[in-house]
Design a binder for these strands. Sequence first.
RNA 1: GGCGCUAUCGUCUAGGGGACUAGGACGGGGCCCUCUCAAGGCCCAAACACGGGUUCGAAUCCCGUUAGCGCUACCA
Length: 485
Amino acid sequence: MTTPRVRFAPSPTGYLHVGGARTALFNWLFARHTGGTFVLRIEDTDRERSTEAHTRVILDGLGWLGIPWDEGPFFQGEYGPRHRADAERLLAEGKAYRCFCTREELEAQRARAEASGSAFRYDRGCCRLAAPELEARLAAGTPFTLRFLLQDDEIAWDDAVHGRISFQGRDLDDFVILRSDGTAIYNLAVVSDDIAMGISHVIRGDDHISNTPKQIALYRALGHAPPVFAHVPMILGTDGKKLSKRHGATAVGDYQDLGIWPAAMRNFLALLGWSPGGDREILTDAEMIRLFTLEGIQKKAAVFDITKLEWMNGEYLSALPAAELVPAVERELARMNVPAAGRDLAPLVNAVKARSRTMLQIAERVAVRLDPARGTLDSRGEALIRKMGGAFAANLRLAAAALEQLPPTAWTTAPILDCLKRVAETNALKLGDAMQPVRVALTGSTVSEPVNELLAVMDRSTALARLGEVAARWGHGGDARVAHG
RNA sequence: GGCGCUAUCGUCUAGGGGACUAGGACGGGGCCCUCUCAAGGCCCAAACACGGGUUCGAAUCCCGUUAGCGCUACCA
Protein backbone atom coordinates (compact mmCIF):
# COMPACT_ATOMS: atom_id res chain seq x y z
CA MET A 1 0.00 0.00 0.00
CA THR A 2 1.31 3.42 -0.92
CA THR A 3 1.34 6.17 1.67
CA PRO A 4 -2.07 7.62 2.53
CA ARG A 5 -3.32 10.90 1.18
CA VAL A 6 -5.99 12.66 3.18
CA ARG A 7 -7.69 15.98 2.87
CA PHE A 8 -9.61 18.58 4.83
CA ALA A 9 -12.21 20.15 2.59
CA PRO A 10 -14.10 23.01 4.25
CA SER A 11 -16.48 25.22 2.36
CA PRO A 12 -15.85 28.94 2.88
CA THR A 13 -19.43 29.73 3.76
CA GLY A 14 -18.81 30.48 7.41
CA TYR A 15 -16.16 30.57 10.07
CA LEU A 16 -13.93 27.66 10.99
CA HIS A 17 -16.14 25.67 13.32
CA VAL A 18 -14.52 23.66 16.12
CA GLY A 19 -16.00 20.54 14.56
CA GLY A 20 -14.22 21.33 11.33
CA ALA A 21 -11.06 22.13 13.21
CA ARG A 22 -11.15 18.76 14.89
CA THR A 23 -11.73 17.03 11.55
CA ALA A 24 -8.69 18.86 10.22
CA LEU A 25 -6.73 17.83 13.30
CA PHE A 26 -7.64 14.16 12.88
CA ASN A 27 -6.65 14.28 9.21
CA TRP A 28 -3.36 15.89 10.13
CA LEU A 29 -2.63 13.42 12.94
CA PHE A 30 -3.45 10.51 10.65
CA ALA A 31 -1.21 11.84 7.89
CA ARG A 32 1.66 12.38 10.28
CA HIS A 33 1.17 9.03 11.95
CA THR A 34 1.23 7.16 8.67
CA GLY A 35 3.81 9.28 6.90
CA GLY A 36 1.10 10.35 4.50
CA THR A 37 0.14 13.65 2.93
CA PHE A 38 -2.40 16.15 4.19
CA VAL A 39 -4.14 18.16 1.48
CA LEU A 40 -6.22 21.29 2.02
CA ARG A 41 -9.02 21.90 -0.44
CA ILE A 42 -11.43 24.79 -0.26
CA GLU A 43 -14.84 23.76 -1.56
CA ASP A 44 -16.07 27.03 -2.96
CA THR A 45 -18.51 25.72 -5.56
CA ASP A 46 -21.43 27.44 -3.85
CA ARG A 47 -20.81 30.82 -5.43
CA GLU A 48 -23.69 32.39 -3.57
CA ARG A 49 -22.35 31.82 -0.10
CA SER A 50 -18.61 31.40 -0.53
CA THR A 51 -16.42 34.40 0.19
CA GLU A 52 -12.73 35.11 0.17
CA ALA A 53 -13.04 36.50 3.66
CA HIS A 54 -14.27 33.14 4.92
CA THR A 55 -11.43 31.41 3.12
CA ARG A 56 -9.01 33.76 4.85
CA VAL A 57 -10.56 33.04 8.23
CA ILE A 58 -10.27 29.29 7.70
CA LEU A 59 -6.64 29.52 6.62
CA ASP A 60 -5.83 31.83 9.54
CA GLY A 61 -7.69 29.55 11.93
CA LEU A 62 -5.68 26.52 10.88
CA GLY A 63 -2.55 28.61 11.11
CA TRP A 64 -3.32 29.79 14.60
CA LEU A 65 -4.25 26.28 15.70
CA GLY A 66 -0.98 25.00 14.35
CA ILE A 67 -2.28 22.47 11.85
CA PRO A 68 -0.11 22.74 8.76
CA TRP A 69 -1.11 21.20 5.44
CA ASP A 70 1.26 19.67 2.95
CA GLU A 71 -0.48 20.54 -0.30
CA GLY A 72 -2.86 23.30 -1.30
CA PRO A 73 -4.94 25.15 -0.62
CA PHE A 74 -6.62 24.01 -3.80
CA PHE A 75 -9.84 25.66 -4.83
CA GLN A 76 -12.59 23.41 -6.05
CA GLY A 77 -14.05 26.18 -8.15
CA GLU A 78 -11.08 25.86 -10.49
CA TYR A 79 -11.90 22.30 -11.45
CA GLY A 80 -15.21 22.98 -13.16
CA PRO A 81 -14.02 21.65 -16.52
CA ARG A 82 -12.98 18.31 -15.03
CA HIS A 83 -16.22 18.00 -13.08
CA ARG A 84 -18.16 18.65 -16.27
CA ALA A 85 -16.07 16.17 -18.23
CA ASP A 86 -16.73 13.50 -15.61
CA ALA A 87 -20.43 14.22 -15.70
CA GLU A 88 -20.54 14.11 -19.46
CA ARG A 89 -18.67 10.86 -19.49
CA LEU A 90 -21.31 9.39 -17.21
CA LEU A 91 -23.98 10.73 -19.54
CA ALA A 92 -22.26 9.23 -22.58
CA GLU A 93 -21.98 5.88 -20.84
CA GLY A 94 -25.64 5.88 -19.91
CA LYS A 95 -24.87 6.20 -16.21
CA ALA A 96 -26.50 9.60 -15.99
CA TYR A 97 -29.34 11.28 -17.83
CA ARG A 98 -30.68 14.72 -18.58
CA CYS A 99 -33.52 15.97 -16.43
CA PHE A 100 -35.67 18.80 -17.77
CA CYS A 101 -37.88 19.06 -14.72
CA THR A 102 -38.20 22.56 -13.35
CA ARG A 103 -37.76 23.40 -9.70
CA GLU A 104 -41.50 23.94 -9.50
CA GLU A 105 -42.25 20.48 -10.88
CA LEU A 106 -39.83 18.92 -8.45
CA GLU A 107 -41.33 20.92 -5.60
CA ALA A 108 -44.73 19.56 -6.53
CA GLN A 109 -43.43 15.99 -6.65
CA ARG A 110 -41.86 16.46 -3.27
CA ALA A 111 -45.04 17.91 -1.83
CA ARG A 112 -47.06 15.00 -3.17
CA ALA A 113 -44.67 12.50 -1.68
CA GLU A 114 -44.86 14.23 1.66
CA ALA A 115 -48.65 14.36 1.55
CA SER A 116 -48.85 10.62 0.90
CA GLY A 117 -46.44 10.01 3.73
CA SER A 118 -43.76 8.39 1.61
CA ALA A 119 -40.16 9.38 1.06
CA PHE A 120 -39.45 11.58 -1.90
CA ARG A 121 -37.64 9.89 -4.71
CA TYR A 122 -37.26 11.38 -8.17
CA ASP A 123 -39.69 9.53 -10.41
CA ARG A 124 -37.22 9.23 -13.31
CA GLY A 125 -39.73 10.88 -15.59
CA CYS A 126 -36.93 12.31 -17.70
CA CYS A 127 -34.94 9.11 -17.74
CA ARG A 128 -37.03 7.37 -20.30
CA LEU A 129 -37.73 10.27 -22.57
CA ALA A 130 -38.26 9.10 -26.15
CA ALA A 131 -35.56 10.20 -28.59
CA PRO A 132 -37.73 12.65 -30.54
CA GLU A 133 -38.95 14.29 -27.34
CA LEU A 134 -35.37 14.59 -26.11
CA GLU A 135 -34.23 16.10 -29.42
CA ALA A 136 -37.06 18.57 -29.36
CA ARG A 137 -36.24 19.81 -25.89
CA LEU A 138 -32.57 20.11 -26.66
CA ALA A 139 -33.37 21.97 -29.87
CA ALA A 140 -35.64 24.30 -27.94
CA GLY A 141 -32.79 25.00 -25.54
CA THR A 142 -34.72 23.79 -22.50
CA PRO A 143 -32.42 23.92 -19.48
CA PHE A 144 -31.56 20.59 -17.89
CA THR A 145 -29.60 19.10 -15.06
CA LEU A 146 -27.73 15.82 -15.11
CA ARG A 147 -28.93 13.12 -12.78
CA PHE A 148 -27.00 10.05 -11.76
CA LEU A 149 -28.81 6.82 -12.60
CA LEU A 150 -28.64 4.93 -9.35
CA GLN A 151 -28.78 1.12 -9.24
CA ASP A 152 -31.03 -0.60 -6.74
CA ASP A 153 -28.33 -2.82 -5.24
CA GLU A 154 -27.03 -2.59 -1.75
CA ILE A 155 -24.17 -0.16 -1.25
CA ALA A 156 -22.02 -0.89 1.76
CA TRP A 157 -18.59 -0.09 3.10
CA ASP A 158 -16.45 -0.85 6.10
CA ASP A 159 -16.20 2.44 7.86
CA ALA A 160 -12.94 2.84 9.76
CA VAL A 161 -14.74 4.09 12.84
CA HIS A 162 -18.23 2.61 12.59
CA GLY A 163 -17.60 -0.76 11.02
CA ARG A 164 -19.93 -1.94 8.28
CA ILE A 165 -22.58 0.50 7.12
CA SER A 166 -24.98 -0.35 4.34
CA PHE A 167 -27.69 1.38 2.36
CA GLN A 168 -30.16 0.03 -0.17
CA GLY A 169 -29.93 1.71 -3.53
CA ARG A 170 -33.70 1.80 -3.71
CA ASP A 171 -33.81 4.08 -0.67
CA LEU A 172 -31.70 6.66 -2.47
CA ASP A 173 -32.79 8.64 -5.49
CA ASP A 174 -31.24 9.75 -8.74
CA PHE A 175 -29.45 12.77 -7.37
CA VAL A 176 -28.40 15.72 -9.46
CA ILE A 177 -24.71 15.83 -10.32
CA LEU A 178 -24.61 18.81 -12.66
CA ARG A 179 -26.66 21.99 -12.36
CA SER A 180 -28.40 23.50 -15.35
CA ASP A 181 -25.63 26.09 -15.47
CA GLY A 182 -23.10 23.32 -15.99
CA THR A 183 -21.48 23.44 -12.55
CA ALA A 184 -21.09 20.35 -10.41
CA ILE A 185 -23.09 19.51 -7.32
CA TYR A 186 -21.19 18.64 -4.15
CA ASN A 187 -21.22 14.85 -4.43
CA LEU A 188 -19.79 14.86 -7.95
CA ALA A 189 -17.27 17.59 -7.25
CA VAL A 190 -15.97 15.81 -4.16
CA VAL A 191 -15.58 12.46 -5.86
CA SER A 192 -14.04 13.96 -8.97
CA ASP A 193 -11.53 15.91 -6.88
CA ASP A 194 -10.75 13.10 -4.47
CA ILE A 195 -10.01 10.83 -7.40
CA ALA A 196 -7.90 13.47 -9.13
CA MET A 197 -5.97 14.20 -5.95
CA GLY A 198 -5.44 10.55 -5.17
CA ILE A 199 -7.18 10.72 -1.80
CA SER A 200 -6.94 7.33 -0.08
CA HIS A 201 -8.75 8.05 3.19
CA VAL A 202 -11.73 10.33 3.62
CA ILE A 203 -11.90 11.43 7.24
CA ARG A 204 -14.90 13.70 7.73
CA GLY A 205 -17.92 14.38 9.90
CA ASP A 206 -20.68 11.92 10.70
CA ASP A 207 -23.15 14.15 8.93
CA HIS A 208 -21.73 12.91 5.64
CA ILE A 209 -22.65 9.28 6.20
CA SER A 210 -25.74 9.62 4.07
CA ASN A 211 -23.72 11.11 1.21
CA THR A 212 -21.29 8.23 1.23
CA PRO A 213 -23.37 5.63 -0.64
CA LYS A 214 -23.97 8.15 -3.42
CA GLN A 215 -20.28 8.89 -3.59
CA ILE A 216 -19.35 5.23 -3.62
CA ALA A 217 -21.74 4.72 -6.54
CA LEU A 218 -20.03 7.61 -8.31
CA TYR A 219 -16.58 6.14 -7.71
CA ARG A 220 -17.69 2.87 -9.27
CA ALA A 221 -19.38 4.54 -12.20
CA LEU A 222 -16.23 6.54 -12.81
CA GLY A 223 -14.17 3.37 -12.68
CA HIS A 224 -12.29 3.97 -9.45
CA ALA A 225 -12.09 2.08 -6.18
CA PRO A 226 -13.59 4.09 -3.33
CA PRO A 227 -11.23 5.32 -0.61
CA VAL A 228 -11.39 4.23 3.01
CA PHE A 229 -14.07 6.24 4.81
CA ALA A 230 -13.81 7.27 8.44
CA HIS A 231 -16.79 9.19 9.79
CA VAL A 232 -16.00 11.04 12.97
CA PRO A 233 -18.76 11.90 15.44
CA MET A 234 -20.34 15.30 15.82
CA ILE A 235 -19.54 17.81 18.52
CA LEU A 236 -22.52 18.80 20.63
CA GLY A 237 -23.39 21.73 22.88
CA THR A 238 -24.07 21.19 26.57
CA ASP A 239 -27.74 20.63 25.78
CA GLY A 240 -26.92 17.70 23.53
CA LYS A 241 -27.76 19.54 20.32
CA LYS A 242 -25.34 20.08 17.48
CA LEU A 243 -22.91 22.78 18.54
CA SER A 244 -24.02 26.08 17.08
CA LYS A 245 -23.83 29.82 17.54
CA ARG A 246 -26.36 29.92 20.32
CA HIS A 247 -24.06 27.79 22.45
CA GLY A 248 -21.61 30.67 22.50
CA ALA A 249 -18.12 30.15 21.18
CA THR A 250 -18.14 27.80 18.21
CA ALA A 251 -15.60 29.35 15.88
CA VAL A 252 -11.92 28.66 16.32
CA GLY A 253 -11.34 32.41 16.39
CA ASP A 254 -13.58 32.66 19.45
CA TYR A 255 -11.18 30.50 21.41
CA GLN A 256 -8.26 32.55 20.26
CA ASP A 257 -10.08 35.62 21.59
CA LEU A 258 -10.86 33.84 24.83
CA GLY A 259 -7.17 33.36 25.42
CA ILE A 260 -6.79 29.68 24.66
CA TRP A 261 -3.29 28.49 23.81
CA PRO A 262 -3.15 26.66 20.45
CA ALA A 263 -1.36 23.57 21.78
CA ALA A 264 -3.96 23.23 24.53
CA MET A 265 -6.71 23.55 21.95
CA ARG A 266 -5.14 20.81 19.84
CA ASN A 267 -4.79 18.56 22.85
CA PHE A 268 -8.35 19.15 23.97
CA LEU A 269 -9.84 18.73 20.51
CA ALA A 270 -7.89 15.53 19.92
CA LEU A 271 -9.33 14.03 23.09
CA LEU A 272 -12.83 14.99 22.06
CA GLY A 273 -13.91 11.87 20.26
CA TRP A 274 -10.55 10.14 20.22
CA SER A 275 -8.70 8.33 22.95
CA PRO A 276 -5.24 6.86 22.95
CA GLY A 277 -6.49 4.31 25.45
CA GLY A 278 -5.50 4.33 29.07
CA ASP A 279 -5.48 7.40 31.27
CA ARG A 280 -3.57 9.93 29.22
CA GLU A 281 -4.82 13.53 29.29
CA ILE A 282 -1.97 15.89 28.49
CA LEU A 283 -0.24 14.84 25.30
CA THR A 284 2.37 16.51 23.13
CA ASP A 285 1.88 16.66 19.38
CA ALA A 286 4.51 13.97 19.00
CA GLU A 287 2.68 11.66 21.37
CA MET A 288 -0.65 12.27 19.71
CA ILE A 289 0.88 11.53 16.33
CA ARG A 290 2.50 8.37 17.59
CA LEU A 291 -0.67 7.12 19.26
CA PHE A 292 -3.27 8.21 16.71
CA THR A 293 -5.34 5.57 14.97
CA LEU A 294 -8.72 5.72 13.27
CA GLU A 295 -9.81 2.77 15.42
CA GLY A 296 -9.31 4.95 18.50
CA ILE A 297 -12.01 7.33 17.33
CA GLN A 298 -15.23 7.26 19.29
CA LYS A 299 -18.52 6.42 17.57
CA LYS A 300 -20.55 8.59 19.90
CA ALA A 301 -21.03 12.32 19.57
CA ALA A 302 -19.20 14.36 22.23
CA VAL A 303 -20.30 17.37 24.24
CA PHE A 304 -17.91 20.30 24.11
CA ASP A 305 -17.02 21.07 27.73
CA ILE A 306 -15.37 24.46 27.87
CA THR A 307 -14.59 24.07 31.56
CA LYS A 308 -12.30 21.18 30.84
CA LEU A 309 -10.72 23.10 27.97
CA GLU A 310 -9.95 25.93 30.38
CA TRP A 311 -8.47 23.53 32.90
CA MET A 312 -6.26 22.04 30.23
CA ASN A 313 -5.32 25.49 29.00
CA GLY A 314 -4.28 26.38 32.54
CA GLU A 315 -2.06 23.33 32.64
CA TYR A 316 -0.35 24.47 29.44
CA LEU A 317 0.05 28.06 30.63
CA SER A 318 1.63 26.90 33.87
CA ALA A 319 4.08 24.66 32.07
CA LEU A 320 5.04 27.07 29.29
CA PRO A 321 8.07 29.34 29.76
CA ALA A 322 6.93 32.94 30.33
CA ALA A 323 8.98 34.14 27.39
CA GLU A 324 6.79 32.16 24.99
CA LEU A 325 3.69 33.81 26.38
CA VAL A 326 5.00 37.37 26.26
CA PRO A 327 4.16 38.24 22.62
CA ALA A 328 0.55 37.18 23.06
CA VAL A 329 0.32 39.12 26.33
CA GLU A 330 1.73 42.20 24.64
CA ARG A 331 -0.94 42.00 21.97
CA GLU A 332 -3.66 41.64 24.57
CA LEU A 333 -2.29 44.55 26.61
CA ALA A 334 -2.29 46.72 23.51
CA ARG A 335 -5.91 45.78 22.94
CA MET A 336 -6.64 46.79 26.55
CA ASN A 337 -4.84 50.10 26.06
CA VAL A 338 -2.30 49.34 28.76
CA PRO A 339 1.02 50.96 27.93
CA ALA A 340 3.73 48.34 28.20
CA ALA A 341 6.37 49.59 25.82
CA GLY A 342 9.88 49.06 27.07
CA ARG A 343 8.77 46.85 29.92
CA ASP A 344 10.12 43.36 30.37
CA LEU A 345 6.90 41.43 30.76
CA ALA A 346 8.47 38.04 31.37
CA PRO A 347 8.76 38.35 35.17
CA LEU A 348 5.20 39.63 35.38
CA VAL A 349 3.86 36.85 33.22
CA ASN A 350 5.85 34.36 35.20
CA ALA A 351 4.36 35.65 38.43
CA VAL A 352 0.75 35.21 37.35
CA LYS A 353 0.63 32.37 34.86
CA ALA A 354 0.53 29.55 37.40
CA ARG A 355 -2.86 30.62 38.64
CA SER A 356 -4.35 31.69 35.32
CA ARG A 357 -6.43 29.59 32.99
CA THR A 358 -6.51 31.86 29.95
CA MET A 359 -4.28 34.40 28.27
CA LEU A 360 -6.96 36.96 29.05
CA GLN A 361 -6.54 36.34 32.76
CA ILE A 362 -2.78 36.60 32.45
CA ALA A 363 -3.06 39.90 30.61
CA GLU A 364 -5.48 41.33 33.15
CA ARG A 365 -3.27 40.35 36.05
CA VAL A 366 -0.16 41.65 34.36
CA ALA A 367 -1.99 44.92 33.72
CA VAL A 368 -2.82 45.28 37.41
CA ARG A 369 0.80 44.72 38.37
CA LEU A 370 2.05 47.05 35.69
CA ASP A 371 -0.29 49.79 36.77
CA PRO A 372 -1.90 49.10 40.15
CA ALA A 373 -4.31 51.97 39.57
CA ARG A 374 -6.13 49.57 37.29
CA GLY A 375 -6.98 47.23 40.12
CA THR A 376 -10.57 47.33 41.27
CA LEU A 377 -11.45 46.11 44.70
CA ASP A 378 -13.27 42.83 44.32
CA SER A 379 -15.87 41.42 46.67
CA ARG A 380 -13.44 39.26 48.58
CA GLY A 381 -11.07 42.15 49.07
CA GLU A 382 -13.89 44.30 50.32
CA ALA A 383 -15.08 41.61 52.71
CA LEU A 384 -11.62 41.38 54.16
CA ILE A 385 -11.41 45.11 54.75
CA ARG A 386 -14.78 45.09 56.47
CA LYS A 387 -13.72 42.21 58.65
CA MET A 388 -10.38 43.69 59.69
CA GLY A 389 -11.67 47.20 60.10
CA GLY A 390 -9.10 49.63 61.44
CA ALA A 391 -6.51 46.91 61.73
CA PHE A 392 -6.42 46.74 57.98
CA ALA A 393 -5.16 50.29 57.62
CA ALA A 394 -2.90 50.07 60.64
CA ASN A 395 -1.21 46.92 59.39
CA LEU A 396 -0.92 48.36 55.93
CA ARG A 397 0.87 51.43 57.30
CA LEU A 398 3.26 49.29 59.34
CA ALA A 399 4.13 47.24 56.27
CA ALA A 400 4.50 50.29 54.05
CA ALA A 401 6.76 52.02 56.52
CA ALA A 402 9.00 49.00 56.88
CA LEU A 403 9.18 48.43 53.15
CA GLU A 404 10.11 52.07 52.68
CA GLN A 405 13.27 51.37 54.66
CA LEU A 406 14.30 48.63 52.26
CA PRO A 407 17.01 50.01 49.99
CA PRO A 408 16.30 49.73 46.24
CA THR A 409 19.12 47.23 45.92
CA ALA A 410 17.33 44.89 48.31
CA TRP A 411 14.06 45.03 46.40
CA THR A 412 13.88 41.33 45.65
CA THR A 413 11.77 38.53 47.02
CA ALA A 414 13.91 37.32 49.90
CA PRO A 415 14.59 40.70 51.55
CA ILE A 416 10.97 41.74 51.06
CA LEU A 417 9.79 38.55 52.72
CA ASP A 418 12.21 39.05 55.63
CA CYS A 419 11.04 42.59 56.02
CA LEU A 420 7.38 41.65 56.17
CA LYS A 421 8.09 38.81 58.56
CA ARG A 422 9.85 41.24 60.88
CA VAL A 423 6.86 43.53 60.74
CA ALA A 424 4.62 40.70 61.79
CA GLU A 425 6.98 39.57 64.54
CA THR A 426 7.75 42.91 66.11
CA ASN A 427 4.08 43.83 66.13
CA ALA A 428 2.82 40.45 67.24
CA LEU A 429 0.78 40.02 64.09
CA LYS A 430 -0.14 36.85 62.32
CA LEU A 431 1.82 36.72 59.09
CA GLY A 432 -1.39 36.67 57.10
CA ASP A 433 -2.70 39.81 58.78
CA ALA A 434 0.41 41.63 57.75
CA MET A 435 0.41 40.26 54.23
CA GLN A 436 -3.23 40.47 53.17
CA PRO A 437 -3.63 44.26 53.49
CA VAL A 438 -0.63 44.66 51.23
CA ARG A 439 -2.02 42.21 48.72
CA VAL A 440 -5.42 43.86 48.67
CA ALA A 441 -3.97 47.35 48.45
CA LEU A 442 -1.83 46.36 45.50
CA THR A 443 -4.25 44.22 43.52
CA GLY A 444 -7.69 44.96 44.93
CA SER A 445 -7.98 41.25 45.47
CA THR A 446 -7.22 38.68 48.12
CA VAL A 447 -5.91 36.42 45.37
CA SER A 448 -2.40 36.68 44.04
CA GLU A 449 1.00 35.09 44.07
CA PRO A 450 2.84 35.29 47.45
CA VAL A 451 3.04 38.94 48.55
CA ASN A 452 6.82 39.09 48.48
CA GLU A 453 6.79 37.93 44.87
CA LEU A 454 4.01 40.35 44.05
CA LEU A 455 6.03 43.26 45.40
CA ALA A 456 9.25 42.14 43.76
CA VAL A 457 7.62 41.99 40.38
CA MET A 458 6.46 45.60 40.60
CA ASP A 459 8.55 48.75 40.48
CA ARG A 460 9.65 49.68 43.98
CA SER A 461 8.52 53.25 43.57
CA THR A 462 5.13 52.38 42.10
CA ALA A 463 4.50 49.80 44.77
CA LEU A 464 5.45 52.12 47.64
CA ALA A 465 3.49 55.01 46.20
CA ARG A 466 0.49 52.80 45.85
CA LEU A 467 0.79 51.48 49.40
CA GLY A 468 1.15 54.98 50.82
CA GLU A 469 -1.77 56.27 48.86
CA VAL A 470 -4.12 53.53 49.93
CA ALA A 471 -3.03 53.72 53.58
CA ALA A 472 -3.59 57.45 53.60
CA ARG A 473 -6.95 57.23 51.98
CA TRP A 474 -8.12 54.62 54.44
CA GLY A 475 -6.81 56.64 57.35
CA HIS A 476 -8.63 59.81 56.35
CA GLY A 477 -12.10 58.82 55.46
CA GLY A 478 -12.83 55.21 56.17
CA ASP A 479 -13.57 54.87 52.50
CA ALA A 480 -13.49 51.22 51.70
CA ARG A 481 -12.55 51.84 48.10
CA VAL A 482 -8.98 50.78 47.95
CA ALA A 483 -8.29 51.03 44.31
CA HIS A 484 -9.75 52.95 41.49
CA GLY A 485 -10.06 51.65 38.00
C1' G B 1 -42.60 10.22 7.75
C1' G B 2 -38.23 7.54 5.28
C1' C B 3 -33.14 6.18 5.63
C1' G B 4 -28.88 6.04 8.70
C1' C B 5 -25.87 6.55 13.12
C1' U B 6 -25.37 6.27 18.44
C1' A B 7 -26.18 4.67 23.70
C1' U B 8 -20.49 3.51 30.56
C1' C B 9 -20.47 8.76 36.30
C1' G B 10 -23.29 15.83 35.05
C1' U B 11 -19.07 16.05 31.02
C1' C B 12 -14.61 13.71 28.24
C1' U B 13 -13.44 8.69 28.46
C1' A B 14 -10.83 3.38 29.88
C1' G B 15 -13.01 -1.22 28.98
C1' G B 16 -13.11 -5.22 23.34
C1' G B 17 -16.61 -12.53 27.76
C1' G B 18 -14.01 -13.92 33.62
C1' A B 19 -8.29 -9.32 35.89
C1' C B 20 -14.91 -4.93 37.40
C1' U B 21 -16.60 -4.24 44.82
C1' A B 22 -16.58 -0.79 36.59
C1' G B 23 -10.56 2.70 36.26
C1' G B 24 -8.76 7.87 34.98
C1' A B 25 -9.69 13.19 33.95
C1' C B 26 -12.83 17.81 34.29
C1' G B 27 -16.49 19.69 37.43
C1' G B 28 -18.64 19.10 42.74
C1' G B 29 -17.74 18.01 48.18
C1' G B 30 -14.11 17.19 52.33
C1' C B 31 -9.16 17.05 54.56
C1' C B 32 -3.79 18.23 54.34
C1' C B 33 -0.22 21.87 52.85
C1' U B 34 -0.23 27.26 53.26
C1' C B 35 0.62 34.80 54.02
C1' U B 36 -4.31 34.47 50.13
C1' C B 37 -5.73 31.96 45.72
C1' A B 38 -4.20 28.37 42.60
C1' A B 39 -1.05 24.15 42.20
C1' G B 40 0.10 19.57 44.69
C1' G B 41 -1.22 15.28 48.05
C1' C B 42 -5.15 12.24 50.29
C1' C B 43 -10.38 11.04 50.54
C1' C B 44 -15.89 11.13 49.18
C1' A B 45 -20.38 11.29 46.05
C1' A B 46 -21.31 9.98 40.92
C1' A B 47 -22.39 5.55 35.34
C1' C B 48 -22.72 0.22 32.20
C1' A B 49 -30.68 3.34 29.01
C1' C B 50 -34.47 -0.81 29.25
C1' G B 51 -36.02 -5.88 27.94
C1' G B 52 -34.92 -10.44 25.93
C1' G B 53 -31.40 -13.91 24.36
C1' U B 54 -26.16 -16.54 23.53
C1' U B 55 -22.73 -18.43 27.38
C1' C B 56 -20.60 -21.96 33.04
C1' G B 57 -20.02 -16.51 32.98
C1' A B 58 -21.72 -10.33 29.86
C1' A B 59 -20.44 -3.25 30.41
C1' U B 60 -18.25 -6.32 26.61
C1' C B 61 -21.64 -10.75 21.47
C1' C B 62 -26.92 -10.98 19.08
C1' C B 63 -32.11 -9.22 18.74
C1' G B 64 -35.89 -5.89 20.16
C1' U B 65 -37.66 -1.41 22.71
C1' U B 66 -36.80 3.47 24.06
C1' A B 67 -34.23 7.91 23.57
C1' G B 68 -30.90 11.25 21.18
C1' C B 69 -28.63 12.89 16.87
C1' G B 70 -27.73 13.24 11.46
C1' C B 71 -29.39 13.28 6.41
C1' U B 72 -33.69 13.67 3.47
C1' A B 73 -31.90 20.75 -2.20
C1' C B 74 -30.05 22.49 -9.25
C1' C B 75 -26.16 23.73 -0.22
C1' A B 76 -21.68 21.85 1.20
